[in-house]
Structure formats: structure tokens, C-alpha cells
Design a protein around this nucleic acid. Sequence first.
DNA 1: CCTCCTTTACTCCCCTGGGGAGTATGGCGG
DNA 2: CCGCCATACTCCCCAGGGGAGTAAAGGAGG
Lengths: 217, 217
Amino acid sequence: MPPLTTTAHALLGLLAVQPWTSYELTKQMGRSLQHFWPRAESKLYEEPKKLVAQGLATATTRTVGRRTSTVYAITPAGRRALRRWTATPGAGPVLEFELLLQVFFGDHGTKADLLDNLDACAEWAAERTRTNIEVAREYATGTGPFPARTAQSTLVAAFLTRHWDAVADWAAWARGVVEQWPDDLSAATPPWEVIREVAARPLPPSPIGRIRSAEEA
Amino acid sequence: MPPLTTTAHALLGLLAVQPWTSYELTKQMGRSLQHFWPRAESKLYEEPKKLVAQGLATATTRTVGRRTSTVYAITPAGRRALRRWTATPGAGPVLEFELLLQVFFGDHGTKADLLDNLDACAEWAAERTRTNIEVAREYATGTGPFPARTAQSTLVAAFLTRHWDAVADWAAWARGVVEQWPDDLSAATPPWEVIREVAARPLPPSPIGRIRSAEEA
DNA sequence: CCTCCTTTACTCCCCTGGGGAGTATGGCGG
DNA sequence: CCGCCATACTCCCCAGGGGAGTAAAGGAGG
């Protein structure tokens, strides 16, 4: 009985809403959770089998013509496991950002490449923002999926919006800074005002002792 | 001759600054790059060997007493590979955020647990902000490491600051929202103003045709 | 001077997960 | 009725995570 992974709990969360086929689970993970818990499609087909093996979900086979599909449903034990999971503090955000790495080492390339990379960041953020606006309009007109879950969804959407705005704002700001730099990037002047602003902040109080940072859990 | 990974290029970037021992490379990755390119320590010992195999770096063994350490240095071919990499647009940000997942499925737990998870997010952000301020103060007083790289570092630090601020702001805001909710989370009222604000934004123009999103690259 | 703890300096290995390839059938548009 | 897209999966290679294990150097404290 190996301990359940976070992905298993995510699937339990979806199953707690309603039963789904494996295919629908992968679609759902791709649509709504991909932005903060991206997982490979093939693994999303494997995972629910483990839930069944642990008695946290049931699988029923449905047949259409000569094709079969598996419908998963959560069990009371599954709901208990889900509830237990929400009570155990999980990991904080983990970020992978190759374009930022390229900006960090941008002085080993050309100024034009650096600007291109910043533009790619801006375009990435614009793309997310575009679909974000479309989804928000659906919810605003009451045509969004799962209206009963709007409260939770909006809380999450509020974070993602801030996140994508942060990327967009930064990319636009950084472009303005880099445009002022000479072609020889080793002679670039740092935007000191950023350093000064952060240095001038008061240190937030550290919770001495009892608290450990979230990702240790 | 398999194509180089992003991690390999990150190490080339470090080696372009100065030669390092494997141990120093792992420390450096842990200190500066961990926030946007986290990698397992054991792999950071393996990776430079591949660079040497491809002729992008050289390894020299140094002996202190009866202990040996390997010093890696970049070659001209390594610098060319690094330059080529900065000219090929990389992937956009990829986020993993378990606490957000727990917030998303928070309606299957208690309100108290939901608030705890939001507090954990706030504490995570406060922790990052703390070390961020300390580092900024070093640079402000001119005592930061690698002053010649301050321009690039500041560009990256500006993004990370925005990112951590976004987490902190969101966690504080979400706490305020959830506090207003009843104990029965299924009766929670969504913060509609978020949806309205996003829905009211003009759609950013989509670059028809030529551009593909960053992460396809 | 001796001891012990921390830092330096790695190697090994199991297993999770990414991700592409492959295989079929159902349904629908033209 | 043909072809394409959506549905519904399985298989497998290999990159990478991460913990365990090993060992010597350096420094702090008695």
C-alpha cells in the first residue's frame, strides 16, 4: 500500500465531483489542472487503476458497439482520503522557466536574441491571457462548466491571472530596460531601482521555530 | 551525439563565467538557478561529464591531500553551443503548485484546512521574500557575488520578485475572501469581481499564423 | 593535540514520470 | 461511402528525482 501521489489525489478530487471515463479524466486534467499540475496523458490512464486497487474508486466498463470505456467513480474511502489530503499542507509552487534561464545567460548571446526571448515571454503570457479572458466571459454570462464549483475555480483563476499578468508585466518592463542597453551586453547597466526597492522593504517576520517551509512537507 | 538538454546549457552558462568544480556547480545551481530551473544534485554531477564527452568543456583533476576534485572549464565549442542556445526560443514557464490544487478541491475539506493552506502559501512567499530582501541588500551595498553579472541577475530577480509578490498578494486576498465564506463551503459565494475584471479586458491580438507558443519549441 | 562536526566531493541505484509511438473503433461531414 | 477527427486506450524507452552511501579535508572546541 504505497502512499498516494498528489496526482492520485487530484484525480480523486475530479471524481468527487462526478464519475468520469479515463478519457474524460485526461481531458479534464488537460483543461483545468494543466496550468498548475501538468501530467503526461499516459500516466493519467494508469493512475485511476491504482485508486481502484486501493479501494478509493470503482471502475465499471461501458460498451458502445464493440468499443469499451471505463467509468470511474469515487468510493466513501476515496472521499475520506481526499479530505485527509486537503488537511495535510502540500508543496509550494515549483517553477521551470527555460526562457528566463536564457535571459539570465543572455550576455553570452546577442541583444537581438535577448529581446526575442523577452518577446516570446510576452507572447506566451498573451496567449494564456487570451484563453483566460474567453473563459472568464463564459462564467460572466453563466455559461461556464460546473457552475456549482465557481467559487473554488475563481479562487484558482485569480492566482493564475496574477501569475500570467506577472509574466506579461515583467516581459514588457524588461524589454524596455534591455532596449536601453548597448549592443555589447557586458556593458549593460543594471536597473538599480529594482534592487533599491527590494532592499528598502522591511524584512517580514520569520516564524521562529514551529513552522517549516511548505515544500518540506 | 544526442542533443544537449536545457540543464547542459545552464551548466555551460555557469562555466562561461568561470571554471568551477562539480561541487561548486551544484552549489551554484542550488543558490541562483533553483528558483526557475531546479535539478537533482546527483544529476548535476553527471551532466558536466556529457559536456566533456561532446568537447564543450574540459575536465582537470585537482588534488588536495589525498582527495581529488574535478574542475570544469568551457571550450570555444562550448561557447558557440551556448550562443546558439540563447538564439533558439525555449519553453515558457511551467508551474507545479500542490497547495493550489488543494485550494481547488478545498470544498471537499473544511474551511479551516482551506485557510491553513492559504496561510502556508503566504508563509512560503514570505520566506522567499525574506531571502530576496537579504540578497538585494547585499547588491545595494555592492557586496553581492559576481558584480559584473548584476544586470542579468537583476532582470531575473525582477521576475522572481514579481512572482513571489503575486503568490503573497493572492494568498492574502484569498484569505480575506474565504473568511467571508460559511463553514459549508458548497454554499460559498464566488468573488465575481475577479471574473468581471478579466471578462471586461480587451482580447490581446493573436499573432495569426507565424508564431507558435513558446513551449512547443 | 585530539575529537567531532561540517563541508567538500563525489557514486550508485531504484523507481517515478515524461512523452512519443502504436492500435482501434465510433461518429460525423461532405 | 470515404475520410477525418474524436474517443479510448496500451506499451515502452529513457530522463530525471532523490535518497543512501562513502570518504577525506578543514575547522571549532576542549
